[in-house]
Design a protein around this nucleic acid. Structure first.
Lengths: 358, 358
DNA sequence: GAAACCTCTGCAATCGATTGCATGAGTTTC
DNA sequence: GAAACTCATGCAATCGATTGCAGAGGTTTC
């Protein structure tokens, strides 16, 4: 059992190798600037002393932290945790640590993020919450240049930040078209929380699919929802209060879809027999609920990897572009058991709604 | 839009307040040691200059990082992410940052953790992986005293570390007893991965429940599994290969239970009609799969909160105990739809197995 | 053979906050 | 009224690594 007496410093290495600390520092950071023999002596000294660089000292001198901050609305949500996994992998492979900050309370989120930067704890930020106030973020500038920041998954409208996200609107259109192709004519949508960018984008795709198929958009079939299972179950209650019910529903995400299916079942309706349901995300559990969920798969690992990689590029000045980049990854349709052909009895009402050849 | 010219330092504050930097430092860290008027002048100066403490400088001087490291086997797993949520909350309320490290590759995990400490990036460690090699951890000592470290959820046998976990063995016994009370006599178990402490503890509880009810433990009913859904589905394949099948199964966790139920369904068996299944953990999705899963709820938020709190206590020297503490939280039985009475046809075989009044 | 140029290394300042020790002013004690 | 004590503050060293500048030694160029 090796007990370390006292953490060795660069001084100890220098003494052992009989060189100055400057040379040790250079040997470790820019090996090519040091002669081969000296380099060998220093490697040996490092090995013998068990030296590890003191990150605080380097941070202080270089004004970098080799750490990124990931600000999430909800770590507990499996949607984010898979992305976080990919972020951690990419960051650590490039020598960066990952600090997580959860559920920034709305009010002072800008201030808290600003503190992380100003206190020199982090070099960059991956922001998963588009609802952050622009004014609060504008504080995030250091020495007149904006702080390295990438908005992931969401987007802050009209704000000059890099973004990495998926093709929400197109994917929502694709999901809705799938229902149309199955013969559904009365199609509803479980919305996300009001004010959220994803809510708007996915609803827009939904509407576009209906319109380009010449189907009506019934306002009462846009059910209020959110990203949680409970919201889906609540949407089912709204669904049962409807005079006329859709035969298919596109949900803003998998969790609300699953909650909705649970609600259907509680009221004795079958999915997909009575109502087809499409989700969004393809969480791990989507394949394991009953019926297995048809959904749009977001490439979550790729989102995390690309976002972290791009952020570190920005931090290290390898991406010089002043102009914000927008990286859009595409989603994939995964057809499982929660969608099926429109029920036969649907034919009659459909005619009432559909003017012959519009 | 306020752009910061240059990050203000304690020097700037001192100049503005016309005191020395020593006084500013004291005013911020030990307000009672500074006269009231000076304190007021300094607060004003801090406000005007927009000063934020440089954490690297403080860390260098004080040899603390005000950051804890959370080493997880798999952040992407929702079981851990909820705990991480609680950890982040507790830590940030006490002024600590949370660094995450995922899936430490087996080989060098000790070395990587040691680096985090030696490089002065973190003050303490929450370790979620009991499979770490003792020798690797023994390296984690600084200045002859062991590094602040708490093992969460799992446990490293015979190792002198604090632990925070749940009553795995008792909870497993309780879950199995539930099946026995429902009249089941042929009861199987989906094991966790070999070598894991949780696997052993939960299996031990399972066996104890059977034995104290006078039921036989059939070795072939101990199905090989792991913590993932796929492992549960694979266990279902083993299940169908059995000459004689259990009517109830206790799974090592919710995910394997859900995978197992999926497997049952693929082979045309009904849960709980043909086979009752109990899980372990009570993940968010347990209530939303079909049938809703009966399970032992682990108090995950409490685990995270208590572990983080205890770790920070140790770091700050508020827990002086040299002896390792073991905090055990209790689990709660949650009965849902995946368990039901033993099927009637089960009566005959049961008699074959059960000597009248043993 | 002098000037110009490289290569390798060391000196010493620097990053920003903390803290042991000293000091001066004011108060209490006997 | 001197000694002892308290309180508020400042001085300056310190934490450990990085880096601009300079110099020593060697090589190339004309």
């Amino acid at each position: 059992m090796t007990l370390v007496k006292k953490t060795p410093t660069i001084q100890d290495v220098a003494r052992y190798a009989e060189v100055s600390t400057a040379t040790v520092s250079r040997a470790l950071s820019f090996p090519e600037r040091v002669s081969e023999q000296t380099r060998a002596r220093i490697s040996e000294a490092v090995r013998v002393t068990g030296y590890t660089l003191n990150q605080s000292a380097r941070s202080l001198r270089q004004r970098t932290a080799r750490t990124i901050l990931v600000a999430l609305p909800d770590i507990g949500n499996p949607f984010f945790s898979v992305i976080l996994d990919a972020i951690e992998r990419e960051a650590s492979s490039r020598g960066y640590g990952v600090l997580v900050a959860n559920r920034f309370p709305g009010g002072d989120s800008g201030a808290r993020m600003r503190d992380y930067f100003m206190s020199n704890r982090v070099d960059g930020l991956l922001l998963f919450d588009g609802s952050v106030d622009l004014d609060q973020l504008s504080v995030l500038a250091r020495d007149r240049t904006p702080v390295p920041l990438i908005v992931v998954c969401e987007e802050i409208p009209h704000a000059p930040f890099h973004t990495v996200k998926t093709d929400n609107s197109y994917a929502a259109e694709r999901a809705t078209r799938h229902l149309i192709q199955l013969g559904h004519r009365r199609i509803g949508h479980i919305r996300g929380p009001a004010g959220n960018v994803l809510t708007a984008e996915r609803e827009a795709g939904f509407v576009r699919a209906l319109e380009s198929a010449g189907l009506p958009v019934q306002p009462e079939w846009l059910l209020q929802g959110a990203f949680a299972m409970e919201a889906g179950t609540a949407a089912a209650a709204q669904f049962f209060a409807l005079a006329e019910r859709p035969t298919a529903v596109f949900a803003v995400n998998d969790e609300s879809a699953i909650g909705f299916i649970t609600g259907l079942r509680q009221h004795g309706l079958d999915c997909p027999g009575d109502v087809s349901v499409v989700g969004f995300d393809d969480l791990a559990l989507a394949a394991h609920v009953w019926p297995p969920l048809t959904t749009m798969r977001q490439p979550r690992a790729a989102l995390g990897r690309i976002a972290a990689g791009a952020l570190i590029d920005v931090i290290e000045g390898e991406r010089h572009s002043r102009l914000p980049m927008h990286m859009v990854l595409s989603s994939e349709m995964i057809v499982r058991g929660s969608t099926g052909p429109a029920p036969a009895l649907e034919a009659a009402p459909a005619e009432t709604f559909l003017p012959a050849a519009q």
